[in-house]
């Protein structure tokens, strides 16, 4: 079990390595997962009350992982920033880290097209870890939907 926060990343993560669920050691993780795990991109939070920020919060009951993914959208509908916080296994952290990298620079509609299979393929996730990439896809969708609801409510 591992946790990522913007204050501590690598140092606290290294201690957790051996106890990653679903793997005896980190050796069974693909190097891309390890890379995201040790140097997670875009860890942190955005102001969830801001009208330009969409927040997605999802959990996986089977493994007990929780993931928060936030996007900041500019006036042209382009995602200019993305942040995440994931409390879960290495694959969940890597999936959400990659997801934030991918959504940045995309329009809301383009970001909706990101599929979990693309994330899983990029990270070479084994079948038992596919649900981690699903969690990331659902987090993106939840964040986009939160953003859209905020925009719609504002127009009213």
């Amino acid at each position: 079990m591992a946790a990522v926060s913007f204050r501590k990343s690598a140092a606290s993560l290294l201690l957790c390595r051996g106890r990653l669920p679903g793997a005896g050691s980190l050796c069974s993780y693909h190097k891309k997962v390890v890379d995201h795990y040790e140097n997670p991109r875009n860890v942190g939070s955005l102001d969830k009350n801001s009208r330009n920020v969409g927040t997605g919060l999802v959990g996986a009951p089977a493994c007990g992982d929780v993931m928060k993914l936030q996007i900041q959208v500019d006036e042209h509908g382009k995602i200019v920033d993305a942040k995440f916080k994931t409390f879960g296994c290495g694959s969940a952290i890597a999936s959400s880290s990659l997801a934030t990298e991918w959504v940045k620079g995309k329009s809301v509609d383009e970001a909706l097209k990101i599929k979990n299979t693309d994330i899983a393929k990029e990270l070479c996730l084994p079948p038992v870890k596919l649900h981690c990439s699903m969690l990331a896809e659902d987090a993106i969708k939840a964040a986009l939907s939160d953003y859209r609801i905020k925009q719609r409510d504002e127009k009213k």
Binding site: A3, L57, V58, G59, A60, P61, A62, C63, V66, K68, K85, F87, H131, M134, L135, D138
Partner: peptide, 19 residues
């Protein structure tokens, strides 16, 4: 396996905060 559709946002937020 998969995303928790039953969990409410408040509960997930609380988990996030504890974490």
């Amino acid at each position: 396996e998969g995303t928790d559709s039953g969990a409410d946002a408040e509960f997930l937020m609380e988990l996030m905060e504890i974490n």
